[in-house]
Structures are given as structure tokens and as C-alpha cells.
């Protein structure tokens, strides 16, 4: 921790409104400007993070096991899972598309799971990783999470477009819903994370805000 220890608002006895950004004294319950509820730290943040995270992980399993896309042509009916589809694309020399699919459908979700888990754990365990880096990671996770839905969008568009009755038709497989649910869950997980906790306990033991309040 070569950098200077930052002063948090909480340590300064202030609380910022997360809606309008107004800073109030810490004992203020309600934002005088926008009326939002003021809370210096969300004590159940981590719990919700883990809950969403688990749900997303559960949904992610069938999303990869079940077929994502059911392609019915005149001749045959093809059921392709996410990874299977990407592999098939790669076999058809569409390597770029395969990579995109893989990145969007596999790499990003998995990376999100890992990143969220790391952030949550880092709050618990007082990780040494720099607070700035972790905050950056959090921002990346929150920003990139939405792009995981690209696969779902592709499926939806293809389903809508390719409806040639008997000749050819594309239906979304069970994995599509599961994948969409997984993405939604991970996004909610990332959102549930109170990023202010990254900055707590820097250079000191983990404070117990509630305890101190009661103590005083």
C-alpha cells in the first residue's frame, strides 16, 4: 500500500446520496435533496451478491448442457449447444465468429462469475489487491455484463427471421432461457455489490460501523 490511504466519506462522518450525489452528515437518514434513503454501507450487500451469483451459476449449467439453437431444415433437425455451435463454426472455418461466440457466451460469463466472486471475497478477506484495481474490475464487470446477452439476442433474431415453415426454421432451445437467466442473475449480482466496501479497512482492521455506533 504505497499510495496514500484515502479518506472515506464514512471516516469523515459523511454519507453520500447514491441517487443525487449530495453529501450529508452520516447520521442523516434521508437525503434532503432528493429524498432517497441514505445508508453509508449496505450490510446485506455481500449476501445478495452471493445469492445472485449462485442463482446465475445454477442457470449457467443447463445453458451449456441443453441446446441453444434448434435448427430444423427440410432434411434434418440440428440441436446445437453453445460450445457445440462455436466448435461447429470453427470447423466451418468461421473462426472469428466462433471466437466471438465463445467470448460472449463462455468467456465473459465465466469471467464475471470469477470477478464477482473475487470482489466479494476481497471484501471479506481484506485482500491486498489495490482498491483502485478492484474498483476498476468492478466497473468492467458491470459494464461488460450486458454484452453477454448477445447470444440470446442472436437466437431471438434468428428465430424471428428464419421461419420458412417446412423448409427451414430455427427455434430457441432450452439453453437460451437458461442462459438469459444466468446473465440476468450475474448482472443483478454485480449490481448488488456495494462498491464502497472496497475502500473500507484500508490500512486498518475492518471497521464495524454498527458496532461503533452502538458503542457510542
Amino acid at each position: 500500500m504505497s499510495e496514500a490511504t484515502p479518506l472515506t466519506a464514512r471516516e469523515a462522518g459523511l454519507v453520500g446520496c447514491r441517487r443525487c450525489g449530495r453529501v450529508w452528515p452520516i447520521e442523516t437518514e434521508e437525503c434532503g435533496r432528493c429524498g432517497a434513503h441514505l445508508q453509508s454501507r449496505d450490510p446485506r450487500s455481500l449476501s445478495r451478491v452471493w445469492a445472485w451469483w449462485a442463482a446465475g451459476l445454477i442457470a449457467y449449467v443447463p445453458a451449456n448442457l441443453y441446446p441453444m439453437l434448434v435448427t430444423s431444415t427440410l432434411v434434418e433437425e440440428t440441436q446445437a449447444t453453445i460450445v457445440g455451435g462455436a466448435v461447429e463454426l470453427a470447423q466451418h472455418d468461421a473462426l472469428g465468429v466462433a471466437i466471438i461466440v465463445l467470448v460472449a457466451s463462455v468467456l465473459i460469463p465465466v469471467g464475471k462469475f470469477m470477478a464477482i466472486a473475487f470482489l466479494a471475497l476481497s471484501v471479506h478477506r481484506q485482500a491486498d489487491t489495490g482498491a483502485h484495481a478492484r474498483h476498476k474490475l468492478y466497473e468492467i464487470v458491470e459494464y461488460i455484463g450486458r454484452w453477454s446477452m448477445i447470444d440470446v439476442f442472436v437466437v431471438a433474431i434468428l428465430t424471428a427471421l428464419v421461419q420458412l415453415n417446412a423448409l427451414a426454421s430455427i427455434h430457441p432451445g432450452p439453453a437460451a432461457a437458461a442462459f438469459a437467466a444466468s446473465v440476468v442473475f450475474t448482472m443483478l449480482s454485480a449490481q448488488s455489490f456495494d462498491s464502497r466496501m472496497i475502500w473500507d479497512h484500508l490500512g486498518g482492521p475492518r471497521p464495524r460501523p454498527r458496532l461503533e455506533e452502538r458503542a457510542t
Partner: peptide, 12 residues
Amino acid sequence: RVSVVWLIPILA
């Protein structure tokens, strides 16, 4: 301590 949100992964 435990959020209600935990119901969702359990349901899943």
C-alpha cells in the same frame, strides 16, 4: 443476515 434473494438460487 441472509438476504431474501437467496430464495432464487435455491428455487433454481
